[in-house]
Amino acid sequence: MAPFGVDLDYVAVAALFCIGLYMLVAKSNLLKKLLGLNVMETSVFAFIVTSGMVEGGDPPLLVAGAQPPFASPIPQAMVLTGIVVVVSVTAVALSLIVQIYAHYGTLEVDELKERP
């Protein structure tokens, strides 16, 4: 979709990125920060996958009856590995957050800064 010469998909992706970035820097709760990081990451995935799309294109499956043009397979393969990396990052971060709470009893960054 591109009314007024602006690619709405890219605009939406950029807006999602900004929402995630705002959560990451403005929220003081560590879990909200991590949710923001996840929103940012998925918006980047959406950008990469969207860049490989073709108008009326089929998925990159060269089976009988499939017609070119095909969507580009490279962005999709990159994003597949990326999704699994994100869940790894999230799992490690969540484990650390649980440890921080058990140790300090709070998840708010400004309170954590005042602790010795």
Partner: peptide, 22 residues
């Protein structure tokens, strides 16, 4: 949009496993 492989993985991991871990 023609990315079924990514959609399956996102549904299982991004929306499923990540939610449970959170």
């Amino acid at each position: 949009r023609g990315a079924p492989d990514v959609a399956i993985t996102e549904a299982a991991v991004g929306a499923g496993v990540t939610t449970v871990l959170f």
